[in-house]
Design a protein around this nucleic acid. Sequence first.
DNA 1: GCCAACGTTGGC
DNA 2: GCCAACGTTGGC
Length: 135
Amino acid sequence: MNYWLLKTEPSTYSHADLVRDKRTTWDGVANPVALRNMGGMTKGDEVMIYHTGDEKQIVGLARVAGAPYADPKQSDPRMLVVDLVPGPVVAHPVTLKALKADARFKDFALVRLSRLSVMPVTPAQWNMLLEMSKG
DNA sequence: GCCAACGTTGGC
DNA sequence: GCCAACGTTGGC
């Protein structure tokens, strides 16, 4: 069981879209570090979905539905995608502002590497984020 | 709208 | 293979 955070621009694809769709293929990841992270995903891993842009907050959960695989729409085999199924919307979104203000997250990739779209979350971070998301 | 912090591209 | 120039992301 691993934990991850995925970023998305909600006007492109939001957590609400995932809830509506019941399942989606998470594609469009091109950054080598993000792809490397995605390659470490396994079925059943838990995911938090973060909205960029105007929101800048963790809004909901999801789960990895299967092992990552090469994007059939791309000729480059390094371009991976992964299927996700939705989890619940969080009661209280966890904002980037809150994480930046919290010394426990000073080394968290979301804070340190603003352009990284797929990143691991440690169990300790995950538990802290879950607590914060309960308000 | 700006720009910091990246990543990518292409000429050499 | 380097690296200058350019492009992109995403927070501010």
